[in-house]
């Protein structure tokens, strides 16, 4: 018996060591990014740059200490990332209103109302999820350009008022279906029309899924790369993702690495905070998304 318990603890310890090693490997990109952003220019000029943001310079003459210079550079130095942040936020905030609003209206129709053609429309919507986005990008670009939206953020915002994405509608509909019908029925008997019932009965109960949608929308548009890459060609309109890409990804110099990493830390920190705040809901949400098949 005693030997058995001993063996069990040994397995447990090995298990935790394995997990800790794995976790360190997986958060390596974060550690790397933070360290780089704190490295001084002199340090990153070395032929082989160390992990931690301190050490001797190439000739072994100067000891380099960690510095916040890169963060100053990107906001108040040679880069103006506040402007880019604002550009990103404009798109993000618009969509954080448009997506949940539009998706929940359509989802309510699917979840709580009867109408001719419902099954067909729903199947049609789901089938579009399998469509590669590549097929739509070129004609959408031509369409938006022809109505004068070519060099603007409008293609990344206004279309979301029309449905807000098939996946989002699907998720909200699934959630609304789990709300007991009785509530809706009772309100109906009291004379509440469908819009009243949507706004006053169903929506207040949908807060959990709406939070999921809000966080997802924030992350999606905060990090969006391809959309802004195609549509935003004026430097003044660049979002964070495009500014980082244009400034640091195309042809970067070693000395620019700390600046790029500081911008990277700034950009990654918000999705990470949101994730920590709402992790339970988000992981559950990821699971629902995954189980749709």
């Amino acid at each position: 018996m005693k030997a058995h318990i001993k063996r069990k603890t040994a397995i447990d310890i090995a298990f935790y060591i394995l997990l800790i090693v794995l976790s360190l490997v997986f958060i390596f990109p974060y550690l790397f990014m933070v360290n780089k952003s704190l490295s001084s220019e002199l340090l990153v000029k070395r032929t082989l740059v160390p992990f931690f943001p301190w050490g001797w310079d190439q000739d072994g003459l100067v000891w380099c200490r960690p510095t916040f210079a890169a963060y100053r550079n990107i906001f108040a130095g040679k880069y103006n990332y506040l402007k880019n942040t604002w550009n990103t936020l404009k798109i993000v905030l618009f969509n954080m209103v448009a997506v949940p609003l539009s998706a929940s209206v359509v989802a309510y129709g699917f979840a709580k109302l009867e109408f001719f053609g419902k099954k067909f429309l729903f199947a049609l919507m789901i089938s579009t999820l399998l469509l590669p986005s590549m097929v739509l990008q070129i004609p959408q670009y031509i369409l938006f350009t022809s109505i004068g939206w070519g060099q603007s953020a409008k293609p990344l915002t206004w279309p979301n008022l029309l449905g807000g994405g098939a996946m989002n509608i699907f998720l909200v509909r699934q959630f609304m279906r789990s709300i007991p019908k009785d509530l809706d029925e009772a309100a109906k008997i009291d004379g509440a029309g469908p819009f009243m019932r949507y706004a006053l009965i169903t929506m207040p109960l949908c807060v959990p899924i709406l939070i999921y949608l809000l966080v997802g929308t924030f992350n999606g548009y905060w990090s969006d790369f391809f959309g802004p890459l195609i549509y935003l060609n004026v430097k003044d309109e660049y979002t964070l993702a495009i500014a980082i890409f244009r400034d640091f990804n195309s042809n970067y110099k070693m000395t620019e690495v700390p600046n790029g990493m500081a911008a990277g830390v700034f950009m990654s920190v918000f999705p990470a905070i949101l994730f920590f705040l709402f992790q339970r809901r988000l992981i559950d949400g990821v699971m629902i998304t995954g189980m749709k098949g």
């Binding site: 997990l19 794995l22 976790s23 997986f26 958060i27 990109p29 974060y30 790397f32 990014m33 780089k36 992350n219 905060w222 990090s223 790369f225 993702a241 495009i242 980082i244 890409f245 640091f248 990804n249 970067y252 690495v257 790029g260 990493m261 990277g264 950009m267 990654s268 999705p271 990470a272 994730f275 920590f276 992790q279 992981i283």
Partner: peptide
């Protein structure tokens, strides 16, 4: 541990491009 292992998935693509090309 689950959280830490999931965390790299929410690094914006353009940032992870930067990280890996530098590392």
């Amino acid at each position: 541990f689950r959280l830490l292992i999931y965390l790299p998935c929410i690094i914006p693509g353009v940032v992870s491009g930067l990280i890996w090309r530098s590392a």
